[in-house]
Simulated scan of single mutants.
Amino acid sequence: MITLPSEQLHLPTAAELPDSDDTPVDNELQNDTPNILLEILRWIWRDRSDWYWGVDMGIYYEPNLEQPEQSKAIVPDGFLALGIKQRRPDEGGRSSYPLWQEKILPILVLEVGSKTYNGEYDGKVTDYTAFGILYYAIYNPFSGKGSHKERQFLQVYKLIDGKYELMPLVVLTEGGRMAWLSEIGLGIGYERGMRGDWQRDWLYWYDRSGVRYLTDAERADREKLAKEEAERAKAQAEAIAQQEKLAKEQAEAIAQQERQEKEKLAAYLRSIGINPDEI
């Protein structure tokens, strides 16, 4: 566990700390993956304000009082903090996550494996263990290839008695895998899906039963489909109602014609001295 400095010191604020190290990410998935998870969380927890999901943001843990820009930080591809006081401190949002200011340690960190080795399986394990972060997830898009041949597509660790232990993954009906994070109340896992025109295995959030939460685009597509189906059903019902109305009108017209013919016949019979009621 890390130890935060005394509040009596003048500690650098988030505004005084660097929010970028100008280092390009190694691959496109390091940006897309955590942002998909953020997008889904915004919908799942749309009525909550006590959480924060950071993407490629510095978690500052050791301030440098003389040179704030030299303060020590770790920068996971994504992280989740629960129990924060406010989702957004001001309209500019967060530029960094200084622990001495936030006072809430992230409960989950996510690393997206890079093509070139970047310490996800050793150095960062040591760092996050020292921090005391409960869950550590590694999503490796290069699983089974080259130097990543023996790596799993998704590994989720839980800190138990000061040591990370690999969690078992539940096999999902759609062919993916999921680890249930009980302290968060969500599962994190993967399955094959489409992101725009890009089809591959993506990371998603799941409920306790292993049902995947949809992305914004998927929800919009389903809502559009449901609306179209409702409109088709309405049009069909209106067509049936129109057919029934026409059939009723046609039947009434036939009945009316029959009555007129009967009355005409009765009038003729009376004109020649025959009572139609006696026939």
Rank of each mutant, 00 (worst) to 15 (best):
residue 242 Q to I: 01
residue 271 S to W: 05
residue 43 W to F: 15
residue 123 G to W: 08
residue 73 A to D: 00
residue 179 A to N: 05
residue 196 G to K: 10
residue 101 Q to K: 04
residue 33 T to Y: 09
residue 218 E to R: 03
residue 225 L to S: 07
residue 53 W to H: 03
residue 191 E to G: 12
residue 253 A to L: 13
residue 168 P to Q: 04
residue 9 L to R: 04
residue 115 K to R: 13
residue 149 K to W: 08
residue 62 E to S: 13
residue 16 E to A: 04
residue 91 E to R: 11
residue 269 L to T: 12
residue 152 Q to S: 14
residue 255 A to T: 14
residue 167 M to K: 01
residue 255 A to D: 11
residue 47 D to V: 05
residue 215 T to P: 04
residue 225 L to M: 10
residue 253 A to Y: 09
residue 200 R to E: 14
residue 36 I to N: 01
residue 277 D to F: 07
residue 239 A to P: 00
residue 99 L to P: 10
residue 225 L to C: 01
residue 171 V to C: 07
residue 67 Q to M: 09
residue 234 K to W: 02
residue 277 D to V: 01
residue 185 G to L: 07
residue 141 P to D: 03
residue 72 K to P: 02
residue 241 A to P: 03
residue 49 S to M: 02
residue 269 L to M: 14
residue 197 D to N: 15
residue 20 S to L: 01
residue 272 I to H: 06
residue 196 G to A: 08
residue 266 A to R: 12
residue 228 E to Y: 05
residue 268 Y to G: 06
residue 10 H to F: 10
residue 136 Y to T: 02
residue 278 E to D: 15
residue 229 E to G: 00
residue 170 V to A: 07
residue 7 E to A: 14
residue 137 A to E: 03
residue 188 I to G: 04
residue 94 R to N: 05
residue 192 R to Y: 10
residue 178 M to W: 14
residue 99 L to F: 05
residue 62 E to Q: 15
residue 142 F to Y: 15
residue 74 I to T: 14
residue 29 L to N: 10
residue 6 S to C: 04
residue 188 I to E: 09
residue 124 K to Q: 05
residue 216 D to E: 11
residue 246 L to H: 02
residue 82 L to I: 07
residue 59 I to L: 11
residue 70 Q to S: 14
residue 100 W to K: 07
residue 39 E to S: 13
residue 58 G to D: 05
residue 231 E to L: 14
residue 216 D to W: 11
residue 231 E to F: 06
residue 270 R to T: 13
